[in-house]
Design a protein around this nucleic acid. Structure first.
Length: 177
DNA sequence: CCCTGATTCGC
DNA sequence: GCGAATCAGG
């Protein structure tokens, strides 16, 4: 049973903001998840938002989004799409940054699967599992190769799609790691 | 070949 | 209204 994601007010609002912010249709589609860039473009036109690259003038260079927009977007993504399978995890209790160590090292040498990407580098085939506090600039997405058809990598899919039956009290404590 | 948005048209 | 297929271009 698929979530049947439609153009909810939330998603439309996010689409509007990202489009007006100069994001490309494919980027927006990747962030929304569950839709293709065609769907995004189609919606954009239906909303009357088109007008970026029309005949004659070309505006290739999309100005990098403001940090505030980036963060707001990250929050929106977490709120609108982490939910279903991981409702409990998405609403984890600890809003404050827990670890004593402030930064988990911006760019370690090389350690395993996780790439940790920003909202801007998230691609269709990348794991959308949120890492860290969405309200901080350090917020990232897992970014590992996602399972075809799913928004998460194998590791995070295991956490996200736990059968409700087996997920008794607390099989796993919710913490985005 | 990668990407971009624009348009059409069956659903 | 929706979005895949297609078109036209960078």
């Amino acid at each position: 049973m698929e979530p049947v994601l439609g153009w909810t007010d939330d998603r439309v609002a996010l689409l509007r903001r990202l489009w007006e912010d100069g994001q490309s249709a494919s980027k927006i589609a990747a962030q929304l998840g569950g839709v293709t860039r065609n769907a995004v473009i189609g919606k954009v036109h239906r909303l009357g938002l088109a007008g970026r690259a029309r005949g004659g003038e070309e505006a290739p260079a999309a100005a990098p989004p403001s940090k505030s927009v980036e963060i707001e977007t990250a929050i929106a993504v977490v709120e609108t799409q982490a939910p279903e399978p991981v409702a409990i995890l998405a609403h984890r209790p600890a809003p404050e940054f827990p670890a004593p160590a402030p930064v988990p090292a911006p760019e370690p040498v090389a350690l395993a699967v996780s790439q940790r990407v920003t909202i801007m580098d998230l691609r269709e085939s990348m794991c959308r599992w949120p890492l860290g506090d969405p309200t901080t600039p350090e917020f990232r997405f897992c970014g590992a190769r996602s399972i075809t058809g799913l928004p998460y990598c194998t590791h995070h899919a295991e956490i996200a799609y736990q059968p409700a039956a087996e997920r008794k009290r607390d099989r796993r404590v919710a913490s985005f790691r």
